[in-house]
């Protein structure tokens, strides 16, 4: 549903994406990974029309997103920016209600549909109990769920999220990602997220995009593409990839690269893949059980 054609984007003099062609699958949870400054956030922001590309187009269901009215885009595409500013003193219900903006005008500020959508979004994101609390008094995990609820209230087919788990502790990260997965699985939403954690990406993504230096190195189901070779190519880091004991998805464990840590662990440090068995074959798609995670 979202595609890019010959996309060139960047900030000031720095060109981050240079001629990117990409197609994101509909009804899938797509995760974009890559090292810092590889252009993953730039890509997400450009696809969400938060950043104007220098050249090329972003297509939403085949139509150039720049040529669609921004309100219409907001009814089809929800965006959660990386660290949204929390307005002082705004209650949860109020903030979630802002998600109805694309359906409202100043002379038609609220309707039953708006109310129902806000209720639904708050229940889905499990923040209904917090409805009357000011957002700036909530914990990081609760806040993130409130922001997600706001984008859910927009009632869009697709949801783009820029590092939705940053600054959250592990339990809250899992909570947020579970919610996103549920949106995809139960509600048929298209979810696209930039994540830092490869193991979470492998655990949740239907479709993984690995980026480096503004280009896509590999794209596909995590079990098919997430290999030690790919990680070396993308991050320049030697890794062991084993099946996750819980989900069976690829689990990335960095190889020992620090001599002092190696000494403490009692095994030889290695910069080369030879010394530690790299589970190269294990990462072939066929090895994993084919049912979903």
């Amino acid at each position: 549903m979202l595609s890019t054609r010959d996309l060139v984007a960047g900030y000031q003099e720095r060109t981050v994406l240079d001629g990117l062609d990409l197609d994101l699958p509909a009804d899938a949870f797509t995760v974009i990974v890559g090292p810092n400054a590889c252009g993953k956030s730039t890509l997400l922001r450009t696809m969400a029309r938060l950043l104007t590309p220098r050249r090329g187009t972003v297509l939403l269901d085949g139509a150039a997103i720049r040529e669609l009215p921004t309100r219409e885009v907001a009814r089809r595409l929800g965006v959660l920016p990386q660290s949204p500013l929390v307005p002082e003193g705004v209650t949860v219900a109020d903030l979630v209600g802002r998600g109805r903006q694309p359906y409202q005008r100043w002379w038609r500020q609220w309707s039953e549909q708006d109310g129902a959508a806000v209720d639904r979004a708050m229940r889905l994101a499990d923040v209904a109990d917090l409805a009357d609390r000011p957002v700036d008094t909530l914990s990081g995990g609760q806040r993130q769920r409130v922001w997600i609820a706001m984008t859910l209230a927009q009632d869009t087919e697709a949801l783009l999220l820029d590092e939705p788990t940053t600054f959250l502790d592990l339990a809250h990260q899992v909570e947020v990602l579970d919610l996103l997965h549920r949106l995809r699985a139960e509600r048929g939403r298209t979810v696209v997220a930039v994540l830092h954690d490869l193991n979470q990406a492998a655990r949740y993504a239907d479709h993984l995009i690995a980026m480096r230096a503004g280009a896509v190195v590999a794209a596909g189901p995590p079990r098919a593409i997430l290999t030690a070779d790919l990680i070396r190519e993308v991050f320049g880091l030697d890794c062991v990839v084993v099946p996750c004991p819980v989900t069976g998805a690829p689990l990335v464990v960095p190889a020992l690269t620090s001599p002092t840590l190696a000494a403490a662990a009692g095994s030889p440090a290695t910069g080369s893949p030879g010394a530690v068995p790299l589970a190269g074959e294990n990462t072939l798609a066929g090895v994993y059980p084919s049912e979903g995670i």
Binding site: E72, V73, G78, V79
Partner: peptide, 17 residues
């Protein structure tokens, strides 16, 4: 009505159209 959105940052505001 429009003042309601001034508390939001630009990316969030663009996101909701």
């Amino acid at each position: 009505w429009a003042l309601n959105s001034t508390a939001l940052d630009d990316d969030t505001a663009r996101g909701i159209g």
